[in-house]
Write a protein that binds this DNA or RNA. Structure first.
Ligand SMILES: [Mn+2]
Ligand SMILES: [Mn+2]
Ligand SMILES: [Zn+2]
Ligand SMILES: [Zn+2]
Lengths: 139, 139
DNA sequence: ATAAAAAAAGAAACATTGTTGCAAATATTT
DNA sequence: AAATATTTGCAACAATGTTTCTTTTTTTAT
């Protein structure tokens, strides 16, 4: 059975064209994708609303995670850790390349620990590095 | 002379009602502000476009900085370090309170150092912590 | 394989957010 | 006070996101 179908079924998502196509985009991309990238890559084959709902359900199920950015654009990337419904554990650093504009999960770079004064409680630490990516550095 | 006017003049910005009012909002707020907060607090006294342009010019001048978020909303906060035109040096951690929703600059918590593989170049590190803020913890 | 039930997609209408060009108003300089 | 430079508000537009409802598709049960 197709690995894409497998992932969808494992997450109790019914298998539809849209979900198959969008999930395969993530599996075949090494960087993060924005909503607009998906619309472009699917040649607007799917309604915008469908794309929004698909992304939301993937996030809910722990298949993809969002990446914070300073401009107003949510980026999404595959979860590679053990994320599930309501359980996101993506403790890795993200890199936004200032040259090519792409965003990457650095799965091997673990989020550093942050110490806050006692009055605060930490729930999650997000680290986004702006810099130059691998392929822009070694062209 | 008014300290607000002083800041504006120091940055070669002409002194207008909008800039005075918006800058004073930042000076009197302990958390970060989103565009919508400013519109609300000024009772839409200023055109939306003016607010956008004012925020942009404050960022350009190094008076305020943006804070990345996972939802699609830019937050802005006063720069307290030595930022200037084209020189942002806000090396502190930001906290997004999951209870009250406010975003705070933790000026005393320095951004941890991050080590990336040699193939990458680091330009800037942004750390956003989700958790519970001081006042939500000690009500 | 077929019918029934459940879930998702599409369409439309709308709300919010952000951008651009230009004329009128305001601030600064002379 | 007048000339110049800058900013503002308006209008029109583009992009992004949400909600409701009907149609289509997928899944489940027979
Ligand atoms: Mn990631
Ligand atoms: Mn800050
Ligand atoms: Zn790059
Ligand atoms: Zn709080």
């Amino acid at each position: 059975m197709d690995s894409i179908v497998q992932i969808l079924k494992q997450n109790n998502l019914s298998v539809t064209d849209g979900r198959r196509k969008i999930l395969s985009l993530f599996l075949n991309s090494n960087g993060a994708l924005a909503h607009a990238d998906i619309e472009k890559n699917t040649h607007s084959h799917f309604d915008r609303v469908t794309v929004y709902r698909t992304l939301q359900s993937f996030v809910d199920k722990g298949i993809i995670h969002t990446i914070p950015t300073s401009d107003n654009s949510i980026k999404y990337a595959l979860c590679k850790d053990e994320c599930g419904e309501g359980h996101h554990h993506d403790h890795h650093v993200h890199l936004v390349c200032t040259r090519c504009g792409n965003t990457f999960c650095l799965d091997n770079v673990v989020t550093p620990t942050v110490k806050l004064p006692r009055e605060y409680t930490i729930q999650q630490v997000e680290v986004v590095v702006k810099g130059i990516c691998k392929s822009c550095n070694n062209p």
